[in-house]
Amino acid sequence: MKFFKLLISFVLIFNLNNTYANDNDLNHKIIKNLRCLVCQGQSVYDSDSDFAISLKIVVANKINEGLTEKQIYSYLKKKYGEWILYDPELNKNTYLLWLLPVLLFLIGGVIIFKRFKIKNK
Protein backbone atom coordinates (compact mmCIF):
# COMPACT_ATOMS: atom_id res chain seq x y z
CA MET A 1 0.00 0.00 0.00
CA LYS A 2 2.89 2.29 0.82
CA PHE A 3 4.22 1.67 -2.64
CA PHE A 4 0.90 2.60 -4.11
CA LYS A 5 0.78 5.88 -2.20
CA LEU A 6 4.26 6.70 -3.36
CA LEU A 7 3.19 6.12 -6.90
CA ILE A 8 0.15 8.33 -6.59
CA SER A 9 2.26 11.13 -5.17
CA PHE A 10 4.63 10.69 -8.07
CA VAL A 11 1.76 11.09 -10.46
CA LEU A 12 0.71 14.24 -8.65
CA ILE A 13 4.17 15.70 -8.92
CA PHE A 14 4.08 15.16 -12.61
CA ASN A 15 0.81 16.98 -12.91
CA LEU A 16 2.29 20.00 -11.20
CA ASN A 17 5.18 20.08 -13.60
CA ASN A 18 2.79 20.22 -16.47
CA THR A 19 3.38 23.96 -16.82
CA TYR A 20 6.81 23.12 -18.18
CA ALA A 21 5.33 21.94 -21.45
CA ASN A 22 6.57 23.81 -24.47
CA ASP A 23 4.57 26.28 -26.50
CA ASN A 24 6.65 25.74 -29.57
CA ASP A 25 6.31 22.00 -30.02
CA LEU A 26 5.68 22.28 -33.75
CA ASN A 27 8.77 24.38 -34.24
CA HIS A 28 10.90 21.83 -32.39
CA LYS A 29 9.36 18.96 -34.23
CA ILE A 30 10.24 20.54 -37.54
CA ILE A 31 13.80 21.57 -36.78
CA LYS A 32 14.53 18.18 -35.22
CA ASN A 33 13.53 16.66 -38.52
CA LEU A 34 15.87 18.86 -40.56
CA ARG A 35 19.43 17.86 -41.21
CA CYS A 36 22.09 20.52 -41.02
CA LEU A 37 24.09 20.94 -44.21
CA VAL A 38 27.15 22.32 -42.46
CA CYS A 39 27.72 19.80 -39.67
CA GLN A 40 26.22 16.98 -41.63
CA GLY A 41 25.75 14.51 -38.81
CA GLN A 42 23.51 16.80 -36.77
CA SER A 43 19.97 17.99 -36.92
CA VAL A 44 19.30 21.69 -37.25
CA TYR A 45 17.93 21.57 -33.72
CA ASP A 46 21.20 20.22 -32.35
CA SER A 47 23.52 22.31 -34.45
CA ASP A 48 24.87 25.74 -33.65
CA SER A 49 26.34 26.48 -37.05
CA ASP A 50 25.42 29.74 -38.76
CA PHE A 51 23.37 27.86 -41.28
CA ALA A 52 21.37 26.10 -38.58
CA ILE A 53 20.79 29.29 -36.62
CA SER A 54 19.43 31.02 -39.73
CA LEU A 55 17.33 28.03 -40.66
CA LYS A 56 15.76 28.06 -37.20
CA ILE A 57 14.74 31.67 -37.79
CA VAL A 58 13.35 30.80 -41.20
CA VAL A 59 11.26 27.97 -39.79
CA ALA A 60 9.92 30.20 -37.02
CA ASN A 61 9.03 32.86 -39.61
CA LYS A 62 7.29 30.36 -41.84
CA ILE A 63 5.23 29.06 -38.93
CA ASN A 64 4.21 32.62 -38.12
CA GLU A 65 3.25 33.16 -41.73
CA GLY A 66 0.85 30.30 -41.25
CA LEU A 67 2.54 27.62 -43.32
CA THR A 68 1.83 24.05 -42.32
CA GLU A 69 4.48 21.53 -41.45
CA LYS A 70 4.21 19.92 -44.87
CA GLN A 71 4.47 23.22 -46.70
CA ILE A 72 7.63 24.10 -44.81
CA TYR A 73 9.14 20.75 -45.70
CA SER A 74 8.36 21.10 -49.35
CA TYR A 75 9.69 24.65 -49.34
CA LEU A 76 13.01 23.47 -47.94
CA LYS A 77 13.06 20.38 -50.13
CA LYS A 78 12.88 22.59 -53.19
CA LYS A 79 15.90 24.53 -52.02
CA TYR A 80 18.13 21.82 -50.57
CA GLY A 81 16.82 18.50 -51.86
CA GLU A 82 15.24 15.59 -50.08
CA TRP A 83 18.45 15.03 -48.15
CA ILE A 84 17.53 17.76 -45.68
CA LEU A 85 14.64 15.75 -44.25
CA TYR A 86 15.43 13.13 -41.64
CA ASP A 87 12.06 11.52 -42.14
CA PRO A 88 12.07 10.25 -45.72
CA GLU A 89 8.71 10.36 -47.47
CA LEU A 90 7.17 7.23 -48.86
CA ASN A 91 7.80 7.34 -52.59
CA LYS A 92 9.29 5.12 -55.25
CA ASN A 93 12.76 5.65 -53.80
CA THR A 94 11.82 4.66 -50.31
CA TYR A 95 9.27 1.86 -50.66
CA LEU A 96 11.90 -0.70 -49.79
CA LEU A 97 13.20 1.34 -46.90
CA TRP A 98 9.82 1.49 -45.21
CA LEU A 99 8.41 -1.85 -46.22
CA LEU A 100 11.36 -4.23 -46.16
CA PRO A 101 11.67 -4.38 -42.35
CA VAL A 102 7.95 -5.04 -42.00
CA LEU A 103 8.12 -7.65 -44.74
CA LEU A 104 10.98 -9.39 -42.96
CA PHE A 105 8.94 -9.32 -39.77
CA LEU A 106 6.06 -11.06 -41.52
CA ILE A 107 8.33 -13.68 -43.09
CA GLY A 108 9.89 -14.35 -39.69
CA GLY A 109 6.42 -14.73 -38.25
CA VAL A 110 5.45 -17.31 -40.86
CA ILE A 111 8.61 -19.33 -40.22
CA ILE A 112 8.01 -19.35 -36.50
CA PHE A 113 4.31 -20.09 -36.59
CA LYS A 114 4.81 -23.00 -38.94
CA ARG A 115 6.68 -24.76 -36.17
CA PHE A 116 4.02 -24.27 -33.54
CA LYS A 117 1.52 -26.78 -32.46
CA ILE A 118 -1.53 -25.97 -30.49
CA LYS A 119 -2.02 -29.30 -28.81
CA ASN A 120 0.63 -31.29 -27.05
CA LYS A 121 0.73 -34.86 -28.29
Binding site: G81, E82, I84, D87, P88, T94, L97, P101
Partner: peptide, 28 residues
Protein backbone atom coordinates in the same frame (compact mmCIF):
# COMPACT_ATOMS: atom_id res chain seq x y z
CA UNK B 1 17.96 -5.36 -36.12
CA UNK B 2 16.60 -5.23 -39.66
CA UNK B 3 15.16 -1.76 -39.06
CA UNK B 4 18.48 -0.45 -37.82
CA UNK B 5 20.46 -2.21 -40.54
CA UNK B 6 18.22 -1.13 -43.39
CA UNK B 7 17.94 2.40 -42.07
CA UNK B 8 21.70 2.69 -41.85
CA UNK B 9 22.72 1.25 -45.21
CA UNK B 10 19.72 2.21 -47.32
CA UNK B 11 20.97 5.72 -48.18
CA UNK B 12 24.26 4.19 -49.36
CA UNK B 13 22.46 1.69 -51.60
CA UNK B 14 20.08 4.28 -52.98
CA UNK B 15 22.93 6.64 -53.76
CA UNK B 16 24.84 3.96 -55.65
CA UNK B 17 21.85 2.67 -57.57
CA UNK B 18 19.89 5.84 -58.36
CA UNK B 19 22.21 8.69 -57.31
CA UNK B 20 19.37 10.04 -55.20
CA UNK B 21 20.49 11.23 -51.80
CA UNK B 22 18.25 10.90 -48.78
CA UNK B 23 18.70 11.00 -45.04
CA UNK B 24 17.32 8.46 -42.65
CA UNK B 25 17.04 9.86 -39.16
CA UNK B 26 15.32 9.50 -35.81
CA UNK B 27 11.71 9.81 -37.08
CA UNK B 28 12.19 6.74 -39.28
Amino acid sequence: LSVVLIGTVYPIFLDVITSEKISVGPPF
